[in-house]
Design a protein around this nucleic acid. Structure first.
Length: 573
DNA sequence: GCCGTTTTCGGCCCGACTGTTTTCAGTCG
């Protein structure tokens, strides 16, 4: 049973207990455990075998026992018992905005509603007002909530949402030039999650400018409709479909507000607990001390400082151990885009890329890199114009010529070699041995079982000519689940053989996932952050890869392409 | 159910908004 599957059981347990009105702190404990387990960088099953589950923050003896039951029997008897009393569908009602546990329960008890479809039908038929506490306005809100749920079912890619959010802030800045004093993205955008639900924007302005600023924002050409706005906040939908929350605060509130609206919620709760323990009370505007004295912070770092913590980068704020690390002075020095000296995975016209090798080299040099690897597809990937061994030889001459024109810059010859269904590679070893950089990837047939997929990757990892495993799971965000894999086994083998694992920076991939990346680093693997560019513009996505590496707690030394060329070549050979 | 710079028992983050409930509960972020 995977960490995610275990987490799902505890999340469902929390849901059904909430519907029953059970002890809220118990529910919070289950929910927190689910969240911790879901993002945990090592195998929960292995930890249980080692008897060290309770060393995880938020997991005590009771939850550890339940994890044991789940791993042994595949079931959670408490959950089974509770779900026998209350249909599992009732919990899904809470997905509708405006409906929480109390309303969901009331809808079920009064009208027998146990699905969103039944809820929509009852609303249509005008039956909802029979439920105590639900009046005509609430019915309207529920109907709107169901629509919002359908609208919101697909999340935006970070690589789409972030540039859009930055452009929105720039447009607001331009439309109200002397009013916007600070501005930033917030929420999951600022924490750089691979996919984004709503876009959160935060702006500082003088109190008297708030209402004007909101009106200016709502009138921007991007905005399709406004769902309601006051003097401090506005919620709108863009023509592109995304929903945006804009908040306006006073400049003196900026530090607290930015921290608050960046989240994550779990991180904020922990920060508040620390504040409380020191006799403070913290909200999104200010810190109040025990003498009721109010403290304002224009910068986030000042707030963390007062609490005795160093500033914690937003990409770490997931309550996954960053607060303990901050306290201990052990926060990682996260890898930055400026640390990268090259890019080891990209395509040219030789396979399915749009630019020539020279153009890719020039564009990369202009970005400040010292080297790149051209890694066109191998022969079996017919659709992409994969190269035969003979074509590789011809390509080498073009690379030599391009290098002659680029001066102090180096193009390496590589290949993205297909890991075939039987686990063998698409080029024989003597061909692989001629290449500077070999990236081995799975593209096809990942519907095989966990064992088969794992075996394919292990074969590639053990091959001494393979340097890097490309986009390990082959997931496509919002389109395709990644391959089912024994990730721990793969990472262990990669660490043992010195095989590098790629964080593919393409916004649809971002694969390794952050939790896998963190586990990889903890197991001693090296990472490579690569664009997988198919054009010169494709090189730009590197920043999203760096963000995911940060979410995996990676430092520059964990990332092979932060090294100078000579050092890189030394490692590869 | 978890946990301890105040604790092994007694707490557990906080404010805004909204609708319908005439004094506040529910939901959200």
């Amino acid at each position: 049973m995977t960490n995610q599957q275990i987490a799902t059981h505890f999340a469902r347990l929390a849901d059904v207990m909430e519907l029953r009105g059970d002890n809220l702190f118990k529910i919070r404990a289950y929910r927190r455990a689910a969240q911790t387990i879901d993002g945990y960088p090592r195998s929960i099953a292995a930890l249980r075998d080692a008897g060290s589950l309770t060393e995880i923050d938020g997991i005590g003896s009771a939850i550890a026992d339940k994890i044991g039951e789940l791993l042994d029997t595949g079931r959670l008897s408490l959950l089974d018992r509770l779900e026998a009393e209350l249909p599992a569908g009732v919990a899904t009602l809470m997905q509708v905005p405006e409906i929480g546990p109390k309303s969901a329960r009331a809808l079920y008890d009064t009208l027998g509603i146990d699905s969103i479809e039944a809820l929509a039908a009852a609303a249509e038929a005008g039956r909802l007002e029979a439920v105590k506490g639900i009046g005509p306005r609430t019915v309207q809100r529920i109907v709107a909530g169901i629509e919002a749920l359908q609208r919101r079912s697909d999340r935006s890619l970070l690589g789409v949402a972030l540039p859009r959010a930055e452009a929105l802030l720039a447009a607001l800045q331009a439309a109200a030039p002397n009013t916007v004093l600070h501005s930033s993205v917030a929420g999951s955008l600022r924490r750089c999650l691979p996919t984004i639900g709503d876009m959160d924007l935060l702006v500082a302005a003088a109190p008297e400018d708030g209402a004007t600023l909101i009106a200016t924002f709502n009138a921007l050409p991007w905005v399709a409709q406004s769902f309601g706005s006051g003097e401090r906040k506005s919620r709108v939908q863009l023509h592109s479909g995304e929903e945006v929350d804009l908040r306006v605060v006073e400049p003196r509130h900026w530090g607290c507000a930015l921290a608050y609206f960046t989240g994550s919620k779990e991180h904020n709760i922990r920060i508040r607990e620390i504040a409380q323990r020191q006799g403070y009370s913290l909200n999104e505007y200010r810190l109040v001390d025990s003498a009721q004295q109010e403290h304002y912070f224009e910068r986030e770092a000042e707030l963390y400082d007062v609490l005795g913590l160093p500033w914690i980068p937003p990409t770490l704020r997931e309550d996954q151990g960053e607060i303990a690390a901050a306290r201990a002075g052990e926060l990682p020095e996260l890898v930055q885009l400026s640390d990268l000296r090259g890019d080891l995975h990209m395509h040219s016209r030789w396979s399915d890329g749009k630019a020539t090798i020279l153009e890719m080299g020039q564009a990369a040099k202009a970005r400040g890199y010292e080297y790149i690897a051209i890694t066109d597809h191998s022969q079996s990937l017919g659709m992409t114009g994969g190269l035969t061994p003979d074509q590789l030889i011809a390509q080498r001459y073009e690379i030599i010529n391009a290098n002659a024109k680029l001066g102090d810059f180096r193009i390496l010859q590589g290949a993205e070699v297909e890991i075939k269904a039987d686990g063998t590679l698409d080029y024989p070893d003597e061909v692989l041995a001629q290449l500077d950089v070999v990236v081995a990837s799975m593209h096809s047939g990942i519907r095989g079982g966990r064992e088969e997929n794992t075996r394919r990757l292990l074969n590639a990892i053990r091959n001494p000519h393979v340097h890097i495993i490309g986009h390990m799971t082959n997931r496509l965000l919002g389109e395709r689940e990644g391959a089912d894999l024994d990730v721990t086994e793969i990472l262990r083998s990669a660490a043992e053989h010195g095989t590098i694992l790629e964080i593919n920076a393409h916004p649809k991939r971002l694969d390794l996932d952050a939790s896998h990346g963190r586990e990889a680093i903890e197991m001693g693997c090296l990472l490579s952050i690569d664009s997988d560019a198919h054009s010169t513009e494709g090189l730009e996505v590197m920043r999203y890869g760096v963000m995911q590496a940060q979410r995996a707690w990676a430092e520059a030394e964990d990332v092979i392409n932060s090294r100078p060329l000579e050092e890189l070549l030394g490692y590869l050979s």
